[in-house]
Design a protein around this nucleic acid. Structure first.
Lengths: 297, 297
DNA sequence: CTCGCGCCATGCCCGAGAGGCATGACGTGC
DNA sequence: GCACGTCATGCCTCTCGGGCATGGCGCGAG
């Protein structure tokens, strides 16, 4: 019996099914399904009844459940306690992230931390690759592309890319604009390595849409918005709204996933071999939970 | 953090060092050493001070120790509790073993089991290979050769092979006899597949000793002893003494290991994929502990 | 009635990790 | 100074956890 298996079993009970639990514990549904059976074989007890629909805990499972929860809680307390004894581990955590994310995501999260929590040493980063940030000394890195092993990562959020128009614009009354219409306008975009730009171009390629009628490059999100506010074009960025700009979702052709809107995926990553890895992953989970509650997943 | 790692760390503290702990938890010393470092990295805490001699727990480790022990105790209780709910798992456990082992080892162990323990359904087996016994439906198998993966096994005991002479024999006053002298006598041996026979012949080959002067084959250990009691030769078997026979250790040439005596190794094996695997390994551990306390390892 | 959708299980493959063996570095005691 | 006991490290194997793709299966909508 391993703690991981116990956590999986409890997650299945709480989530009411394997599929839902798999999402909660960040593994695929087949993997979780197999781990469950392994735990059952290991203990020699049938924990779940299979059959129609979501599987349901057996009587034995429910009887064990309190002890299993206690086991997890105790393990959690041990890991917390280690933070106290950690030498140079979680007193300071260096968080690296692109600028947009820092202002819109990390800063609000830092504001929610208590006195017991580690001090987050936030550092803006040019690279979009979490792997590079980790190599540069960051403990946690936020970016758009999952790093390769042995780094670990977790999905953080799926943020929409907005097309910002000023209040007087003909589109100002709409809530979304199709990609095909968007390219007919002059666009204010960020330079290439920025994710909103890359996501837009990838979507254009995938949809077979023509190149935008005109492109104006801005050095940062706020500047792009300022240009849009000045009527120089439609700013396509993922920043939150400024200057009273009106955000429009960018509608993609059907079947493109992400609810048909242009989005960018954020991930949070850390080094699996770093000291206090348990603490880092816990912090990453809290950050993900915070973002989910704030942006609604 | 996984329960296995916790168990390892506690074992190291209790045993006072990696090497001793490795034996206690049945893994090799290098493996245990690495797991420890992994646990430290995972928690972000230095648990042991390395340096001269056996490593010693740090202050942080000692602070965590009670919680770790509690964690293991709780996990143990959960596994015990599962035995109660196990369906057809550990109510009956089929134990297969060679005849000698059954009478001399398993039976006394069965006598020590309480009402809460599973019923051991003991079955004598001709094969010396635990793998065959498991394939034949046994839950636990006792034999002389460790099975291949995915079966799991544990060393059970190292039993001496005795040279039995009757009280009136010229050797009756001795406690041991060298292999070279033994072969000059007429010997009462078991047939080939029996382990005492195979061990003897392997030792003869290894020592370059001549073949025994004369061999009388007996169908079983007790019969061999009966023949020895009748003065028909020296019985070389691993059974406990009967018929007032005098046991002599068989001395091997130096460097042959096993404290220079002819011995056979016993192992207990089970199927890692069997239901109630946790209960089986616990039972195997208890059996090993019993044998150790009875035969002094 | 049938089709589609949401469940979970299974087959396949890959990579990480745990394990063993052999060996090396380091201290201690004879 | 040498033998021995400690733990660490390199190398290899093999299990197992994980993901993707796919297959049954029941239920509900059309």
């Amino acid at each position: 019996m391993e703690l991981r298996h116990v956590a999986y079993a409890v997650a299945v009970v709480d989530a009411g099914g394997v599929s839902a639990a798999a999402e909660a514990v960040h593994v695929s549904q087949p993997s979780l399904s197999r781990q469950l059976r392994q735990l059952e074989a290991d203990l020699g007890v049938t924990l779940f009844e299979r059959g129609s629909g979501p599987l349901r805990p057996t009587r034995a499972c429910l009887a064990l459940l309190p002890a299993l929860r206690e086991l997890l809680a105790l393990a959690g307390r041990v890991e917390e306690q280690t933070a106290v004894h950690a030498r140079g581990g979680l007193d300071r955590v260096v968080v690296a992230a692109p600028n947009v994310t820092l202002t819109d995501v990390v800063s609000p999260f830092v504001a929610t931390l208590g006195a017991d929590d580690p001090v987050l040493d936030v550092r803006p980063e040019d690279s979009r690759l979490p792997a590079d940030m980790l190599a540069a000394g960051a403990d946690l890195a936020i970016g758009t592309r999952p790093p390769a092993a042995p780094a670990r990562w977790r999905p953080l959020a799926t943020l929409p890319v907005w097309a910002y128009v000023r209040p007087g614009d003909p589109w100002a009354g709409r809530v979304q604009v199709p990609l095909s219409e968007l390219v007919e306008r002059r666009l204010v975009l960020l330079p290439r390595p920025f994710t909103s730009r890359e996501a837009l171009e990838a979507a254009l390629t995938a949809a077979g849409a023509p190149a935008p009628a005109g492109v104006l490059e801005a050095a940062s999100g706020p500047i792009a918005q300022a240009l849009a506010a000045a009527g120089r074009g439609v700013a396509v960025v993922s920043d939150d709204a400024r200057h009273d700009l009106v955000p429009l979702a960018v509608r993609l052709p059907a079947g493109a996933g992400d609810a048909g809107r242009l989005t960018i995926r954020l991930v949070v990553a850390w080094d699996s071999r770093a000291p206090a890895q348990a603490g880092l992953s816990a912090l990453a989970d809290r950050l993900a939970a915070f973002v989910t509650s704030r942006y609604g997943g």
